[in-house]
């Protein structure tokens, strides 16, 4: 492929993403970073975990993304009595026209392109585990029968940081499977005005279908082709290393407050996110700035604080911010 063609592809990618973000922005007020993060997770082939208090529009955001992408969407409200079969599906006895009975697999909510796992931490670990396994493998096996989930398969899980009583917080190993963890913040006053204006009018805004499923797959493929220069990749690696308290490049905060640093999946996420960021900015290669942009969302759920960190109320975002500040780009 000639450089000119590459440039055209990148431009098309940038334009599509811009259009998609614009369309989502028609419905979702504010939360640009969240929307970008969700789109990045989708294009990277990962899943996103949205954390925020109820009523901030998390479910709305996911629905809007599904609408704008022209993809199948399903929603599962996680409750303590939700069973794995409710998500994955189950074999049921079905009677045919001739009256003979047979088992037929009834697909669960997971058989969609975009799945909203609402309040994921309310379901039991067994159920959570069923979903997370499917997220990782992108396939479902029931009664020795395997069903491949149709790509793109994108799970957006939400969790409420409040009302922790009666919840089952996701274990660290399962959190690691989310490409990004996005924090949904309370909207600003200006954004609140806009939300009120839009949602209290006669008609509620809806997103139009902007990008097709096929285009999404193409874009996903393009992301993987973006190169990374070794110094830039080295920067990503050093950032990851600095999250480990025992590492020589660890910052004082990570030495003091971190129990376990991020797994290599963190670096994978950072690099993929950075590639998407580069494409979204019309560039052909990843820059250190791209890494700086995506690192907080990719690392915040992969760093486990120690008791001192928890007791001091230190957030993983603070740790990552310090690491990014302290790690030099060129070594």
């Amino acid at each position: 492929m000639k450089p000119g063609e590459v440039a055209a592809l990148v431009q098309a990618f940038q334009a599509d993403v811009q259009r998609l973000l614009g369309e989502i922005g028609q419905v979702i007020v504010g939360h640009e970073e969240i929307v970008r993060g969700a789109v990045m997770s989708l294009l990277a082939g990962g899943h996103a975990l949205l954390e925020g208090v109820p009523g901030l529009g998390k479910t709305m955001l996911v629905k809007t993304i599904a609408e704008a992408l022209d993809l199948n969407f399903s929603r599962v409200q996680f409750t303590p009595d939700l069973m794995p079969a409710d998500i994955l599906g189950t074999n049921m006895i079905v009677e045919d026209e001739r009256g003979s009975k047979y088992f037929d697999f009834q697909r669960g909510a997971i058989f969609a392109n975009i799945v909203l796992a609402d309040e994921i931490n309310r379901a039991t670990p067994k159920t959570q585990s069923a979903l997370l396994e499917a997220m990782q493998e992108q396939r479902v096996t029931v009664a020795k029968q395997t069903f491949v989930l149709e790509p793109p398969f994108f799970v957006l899980a939400t969790q409420n940081p409040l009302e922790m009583e009666g919840t089952y917080p996701l274990p660290e190993a399962q959190l690691d499977r989310f490409f990004m963890k996005l924090k949904v913040e309370f909207p600003t006053r200006e954004h609140l005005h806009t939300i009120l204006d839009r949602t209290t009018a006669a008609e509620n805004p809806h997103a139009r279908k902007i990008v097709t499923r096929e285009r999404i797959l193409e874009m996903k493929e393009l992301v993987r082709r973006v190169p990374v220069a070794r110094p830039v990749q080295d920067f990503a690696v050093r950032v990851l290393e600095a999250t480990h308290p025992e590492s020589p490049s660890a910052t004082p905060a990570s030495k003091k407050y971190v129990r376990f640093g991020s797994s290599p999946r963190g670096a994978q996420s950072i690099l993929l996110g950075a590639k998407i960021s580069a494409l979204m900015n019309g560039r052909f290669a990843v820059a250190c700035d791209d890494i700086r942009k995506v690192a907080p969302a990719c690392l915040r759920h992969r760093i486990i604080l120690n008791f001192e960190g928890e007791a001091e109320g230190v957030s993983t975002d603070q740790i990552v911010a310090e690491i990014l500040k302290a790690t030099p780009e060129a070594k």
Partner: peptide
């Protein structure tokens, strides 16, 4: 690997 993108990056 990713030669086309690399050349495009150099041109850019």
């Amino acid at each position: 690997e990713h030669q086309d993108f690399k050349l495009a990056a150099i041109e850019d």
